[in-house]
Design a protein around this nucleic acid. Structure first.
Length: 584
RNA sequence: GCGCCCAUAGCUCAGUUGGAUAGAGCACUCGCCUUCUAAGCGAGAUGUCGCAGGUUCGAAUCCUGCUGGGCGCGCCA
């Protein structure tokens, strides 16, 4: 239950009653009425702007409307007080019983607490990673991988039917370069001295294994053969090998995809041609010559007729080419086909997670989606900014001399999957992220991964103690009676309950905004509130969780602890991090 | 030159889709602390929300124009 959604509905119902009683004119638009947590907790539990938003259309003064609405809301059994404040806010204070019931919700619903149906099982397609199959993934890919994976989990939790996709760019010239690079390694494996890797080919050592494998499979058969005889064969082999490596790296990060779509597969199936014909049928394609970019003219620029898509009709700055001069499709053309394919597979909502260096590509893709779906499909692109690797506060130098760079696998091996995943969500996706290899392993409050994990582990520690103290109690399945939970009356305890009760709203709003980082920030806040309560117990022994002389109060507090573990585990589940029960 | 993203406390960043007196951590100052798990706790101070206009009951948030930084700009993906 999202209690703010609940009270929003209660407020609208109260307004309807006022309308029915003739106190308000009929036909008021209540779409701008909100029910939110007040910024200042001292203002109460739920604040609504209803009186301010409706005063003008209703032709009454905000405070007069607020008085009537507040009186109506006070009738609600959970509303202890409805106060009018500021320019016309109504602040609701909810009863302790109400909060005890919300805590009961957490305990009854367990790990599923916070799940929502706002997605209405609508299908959403999240495409992420989609790294070129030409080499191992680097640190930058890790961010997109985590953001996409967590976003997919988040949308799922919010009630969407989510597909996680990876688009394999295996049709462009880059994979031909890959094939040639592997052919060189193949000759090397056959005993040739290949010398330095020529400019323009991939120099990485990781291609040696593929070269050796091909040498075993084919012997010297293609050693001096013309390119046309081996290129497709070597290309497919190498792409497969690279995808195997990428999938294994992703598995190390705990990132998974439901579907892998091959660009070449789309081309071979004629889907790019079909997309072009579809757009041609809408008269959105023409042969034309583009203006050169102003200010910065490429050296070899010359006017050239091209097959262009009328992107400008859909908000882009210029029309965009679909074909290269050799007649093959541009990446854009096959990406249009890919997104049309997604749409035809039933995804009206598409989310792509890209690196920020692809930012200039967003408008044309959205233009294409708008054109192909007649405005019925929506594409949201999440651009992930760069990750700066640091060590001890200093930039972490990659060793170019050795030809190595920091791969995703290196990173996971160095600090662990869970750390990588959590840290990647400690900034919103469009902000630069500093990743300090030392700091993320620190055991301190500055390290959010540790701080959240430690809160979870501390709860388990107390629950273990409780089992020793009262062997008949199972803290892991405990659901205390409402009357017992009502014994939680300390302001710090109630604040923690309020935070827990806010979890469903966090899930919903983060899902609506497509912003998984909000989950990480919420978990940090929750951990801080829990640690704060713990620390109060140091000063005041009456606030310790377990009080041997008061079993009932201890049971209530064990319920609170269990709720904390459930919500933390639920949030970490979205991020893809394993909650720890012990941190020794 | 054009487009997109960003600009919030000394530092690193949140800011609930337009709400009330803009928050947290670090650093700083002053106290306390040897534990239900140690990786500390409490209190204090900190702002031209880049600048200038506009929209309205109300703007860090939306619009316009500047300034500064990042990314991109026809056959790479």
């Amino acid at each position: 239950m999202n209690l703010f959604r609940y009270f929003h509905d209660e407020i609208v119902a109260a307004l309807d009653r006022l309308t029915a009683a003739g106190a308000l004119p009929s036909g008021l638009d209540t779409s701008r009425v909100t029910a939110e947590p007040p910024r200042e907790t001292s203002h109460g539990d739920v604040a609504t702007n209803a009186a301010m938003v409706l005063a003008k259309p209703a032709g009454v003064k905000p405070r007069d409307l607020a008085e009537k609405l507040a009186a109506e809301l006070r009738v609600h059994p959970a509303v202890m007080a409805a106060e009018i404040a500021g320019p016309g806010f109504i602040n609701l204070r909810l009863s302790d019983d109400f909060w005890a019931e919300r805590l009961g919700d957490v305990l009854r619903e367990g790990i599923g607490y916070g799940e929502s149906d706002i997605g209405h099982s609508l299908r959403v397609n999240v495409e992420y990673v989609s790294a070129n199959p030409t080499g191992p993934m680097h640190v930058g890919h890790a961010r997109g991988a985590v953001v996409g994976d967590a976003l997919a989990s988040l949308l799922s939790k919010a009630g969407h039917d989510v597909a996680r996709e990876y688009y394999i760019n295996d049709a462009g010239s880059q994979v031909d370069v890959l094939a040639r690079s592997v052919h060189l390694r193949y000759r090397e494996a056959l005993g040739e001295d290949i010398g330095a890797i020529p400019e323009g080919l991939y120099p990485g050592e990781y291609l040696k294994a593929s070269g050796e494998e091909l040498a075993r499979l084919y012997g010297p058969r293609f050693q001096t053969a013309p390119e046309s005889e081996w290129l497709p064969l070597f290309r497919d082999f190498a792409v497969n090998a690279m995808m195997g490596m990428i999938k294994s790296d992703l598995a190390a990060l705990g990132v998974r995809h439901d579907v892998f779509i091959s660009e070449r597969g789309l081309v071979d199936a004629g889907k790019v041609t079909a997309a072009e014909q579809f757009l041609t049928g809408k008269e959105l394609i023409y042969e034309g010559v583009l203006e050169p970019p102003k200010g910065k003219l490429p050296d070899d620029w010359e006017p050239r007729p091209q097959t262009l898509f009328r992107a400008t009709q859909f908000g882009d700055d210029v029309d965009r080419p679909l074909k290269k001069s050799d007649g093959s499709w541009t990446y854009f053309a096959s990406d249009i086909a890919y997104h049309l394919d997604k749409y035809r597979r039933g995804f009206n909502v598409m989310i792509d997670v890209w690196g920020a260096d692809h930012g200039g590509y967003v408008k044309r893709m959205q233009a294409a989606v708008a054109a192909m779906t007649g405005g019925h499909g929506a594409l949201d692109v999440k651009l992930c900014q760069m990750v700066n690797l640091l060590k001890g506060g200093e930039p972490y130098k990659m060793s170019k001399r050795a030809g190595t760079f920091v791969t995703l696998r290196d990173l996971v091996d160095a600090v662990g999957r869970d750390v990588v995943r959590f840290i990647m969500l400690t900034r919103k996706n469009d902000a630069h992220l500093d990743f300090d290899l030392d700091k993320v392993l620190e055991q301190s409050r500055d390290n959010p991964v540790f701080y959240v994990q430690y809160a979870h582990a501390r709860c388990y520690s107390v629950m273990r103690h409780a089992s020793e103290m009262w062997p008949e109690i199972d803290p892991l399945t405990l659901v205390p009676e409402p009357g017992v939970l009502r014994r939680l009356t300390d302001p710090a305890e109630l604040a923690l309950i309020r935070l827990l009760a806010g979890w469903p709203r966090v899930v919903e709003s983060a899902a609506e905004a497509h912003e998984p980082h909000r989950i990480a920030f919420y978990l940090y806040d929750l951990a801080a509130a829990f640690h704060g309560l713990w620390n109060k117990g140091k000063d005041d022994s009456r606030l310790r969780f377990l009080i041997e002389a008061d079993r009932e109060l201890s049971v209530a507090r064990l319920g609170l602890l269990r709720a904390v573990t459930l919500v933390i585990a639920s949030g970490l589940g979205i991020i893809g991090v394993e909650p720890m029960e012990e941190m020794r």
